[in-house]
């Protein structure tokens, strides 16, 4: 297990470009680093139970043995410097990495006690339960209505047009976009502003009624006002959905999440209640990061 057998990696190198090898152990200044994850990674009755997860791109190991529980109807933030593997880890949770040929995932990843990477596991069904919102807004080149209705249509969630209308309306309302677009549902989704596009993508994701929504830096392409709107939305959504959000902004993590996980070069360093991570970090790497010494 890599968590038991610390590998020391030069801090300036990103994991994507470096293979872990015996030579790496020569660099010693972070020797105290990557042992067991500190804080409280495990909870009772988790939505996701992840154990010893390792991800490889070809020969390069991007995730080096992470164990973590994710609680139901909570928001958890993944933070960490660029290239620490947080997005890669996030994409494992609904198997979006499947489409990358060279990517391999090891370890045990369970959703409600069932293995995600089980051979018999249906990836379509999994993704219907675990939705995702991406870094850059990516509405389909279709009308606003068709964007939201896409998921329910392919999954056959509505029997009648009126049911579909209801789903679209509710999703747009939940995403806080209804008031702005209700008069122009037929206009193309690509014509909206960046923030509106991202909310449209969130509406599209929740239209399928997923149990979990993964968000990969959902605000990184948005201006501050649009960001504030999305953050508000995340807090509202957390009542009915489990939300996992990758973010570069520590303030955002502090504002929206119940728990925060700090990643460093493919290792999970510390997980705890958000206020604890930000007020009294237990690991010195976490502390360096949140006090802005690197990142």
């Amino acid at each position: 297990m890599n968590t038991m057998n610390p590998n020391i990696v030069n801090e300036t190198a990103t994991t994507e470009t470096r293979a872990v090898s015996a030579a790496d152990t020569d660099i010693s200044h972070a020797d105290n680093g990557y042992g067991e994850t500190v804080g409280k990674p495990f909870t009772d009755n988790p939505k996701f139970a992840l154990r010893d997860v390792e991800v490889y791109y070809g020969d390069t190991q991007a995730i080096k043995g992470i164990s973590l529980d994710i609680r139901k109807n909570q928001v958890i933030s993944f933070i960490g410097p660029s290239g620490c593997g947080k997005s890669t880890f996030l994409r494992c949770l609904n198997r979006m990495n499947d489409s990358i040929d060279s990517c391999r995932v090891k370890g045990r990843l369970e959703l409600d006690g069932q293995d995600i990477y089980d051979r018999k596991r249906d990836v379509v069904e999994l993704r219907a339960r675990v939705g995702m919102v991406f870094q850059k807004p990516n509405p389909f080149p279709k009308s606003i209505y068709d964007n939201v209705a896409y998921g329910p249509r392919i999954h056959g969630l509505a029997n009648r047009k009126s049911e579909l209308d209801d789903i679209v309306e509710n999703s747009l309302k939940k995403a806080g976009l209804w008031a702005e677009v209700k008069d122009r549902l037929d206009s193309p989704g690509t014509g909206l502003s960046g923030g509106q596009q991202q909310r449209l993508c969130i509406a599209r994701a929740i239209a399928v009624s997923p149990e979990v929504v993964l968000m990969d830096e959902p605000c990184s392409a948005l201006d501050p006002i649009a960001t504030a709107r999305i953050e508000e939305l995340i807090s509202e959504l957390s009542e009915s959905y489990t939300i996992i959000i990758v973010t570069h902004s520590m303030q955002q993590a502090a504002r929206v999440s119940h728990r925060t996980a700090y990643f460093h070069l493919g290792h999970l360093i510390e997980v705890n209640e958000t206020n604890k991570v930000f007020t009294s970090p237990q690991h010195e790497l976490t502390e360096s990061y949140i006090t802005g010494r690197f990142g």
Binding site: D122, V124, E125, A128, R129, I154, H155, G156, L157, V208, S209, E211
Partner: peptide
Amino acid sequence: DQLSQAELVRQSLKRR
């Protein structure tokens, strides 16, 4: 509601 949604998805799978 959510459970029945999941059930609906599962039902559609074979056809899809």
